[in-house]
Simulated scan of single mutants.
Amino acid sequence: MSDSSLTIDNILAPELTLCRVAASSKKRVLEFIAEYIHQQDESLNDTDIFNNLVSRERLGSTGIGDGIAIPHCRLDGLDRVIGVLMTLAEPVDFDSIDNQPVDIVFALIVPKEATSEHLELLSQLAEKFNESSFCEKLRQCQDTDSLHKTMISNQN
């Protein structure tokens, strides 16, 4: 299987799609992502994931504007790309470039050596989230099932 076939729909599992999560801060959002990935795959250490996400945020916020954040990091020993999609019950401050609070979060955890895949997925995500009608659909989802379907349905 070639790495170029990585798309959002084949890295985002329904069980890593979370609707209307209650999180009070950016730190809590990142903790939640790390804990959730660990619950799905106990071989992955939630503290490592959290620390890597925080280190990446220190380089500059992954809040890309319009209420969207794409926190991402690389992880040693990971053999696949993991995506986590969350909508938040209440927007949180994410130090975004436009200073708007964030209520849609798509986290991307990639293997240490996956550079081109990483960039390709980030650009696919940015393109999708650039469409305000699509973001509006995500925000209207009331449950994880509809959120997952909406995220993967309009592949370009």
Rank of each mutant, 00 (worst) to 15 (best):
S4Q: 08
I8H: 10
N10R: 04
N10L: 09
I11C: 15
A13N: 09
E15D: 13
V21Y: 03
V21S: 02
A23N: 10
S24A: 14
S24M: 10
S24W: 05
S25F: 03
E31T: 14
E31P: 05
F32N: 10
F32L: 15
I33E: 02
E35I: 07
Y36F: 04
Y36Q: 12
I37M: 00
H38D: 01
H38G: 08
H38C: 12
Q39F: 05
Q39T: 08
D41E: 10
E42D: 01
S43W: 04
S43Q: 10
N45E: 11
N45F: 00
N45W: 02
D46F: 12
T47I: 04
T47G: 00
D48S: 13
F50R: 01
F50S: 02
F50E: 03
N51A: 10
R56P: 04
E57K: 01
R58H: 11
L59W: 06
G60C: 11
S61P: 03
S61I: 03
G63Q: 02
I64C: 05
I64D: 04
G67Q: 04
I70L: 14
P71A: 04
P71T: 02
C73N: 06
L75Y: 01
D76C: 03
G77N: 09
G77Q: 06
L78F: 09
D79A: 13
D79T: 14
D79E: 13
I82K: 01
G83T: 01
A89G: 08
E90S: 14
P91V: 08
S96N: 08
S96L: 01
S96H: 09
D98W: 09
N99A: 13
N99T: 07
Q100L: 13
P101T: 01
I104H: 07
L108N: 04
L108W: 02
I109W: 01
V110Y: 04
L119N: 02
Q124P: 00
E127R: 15
E131D: 15
E131T: 06
S132C: 01
S133F: 08
F134Y: 14
F134E: 06
F134V: 10
E136H: 07
K137N: 12
Q142K: 15
T144E: 15
K149Q: 15
T150Y: 08
M151Y: 00
I152Q: 05
S153K: 14
S153Y: 10
N154D: 12
Q155K: 13
Q155S: 13
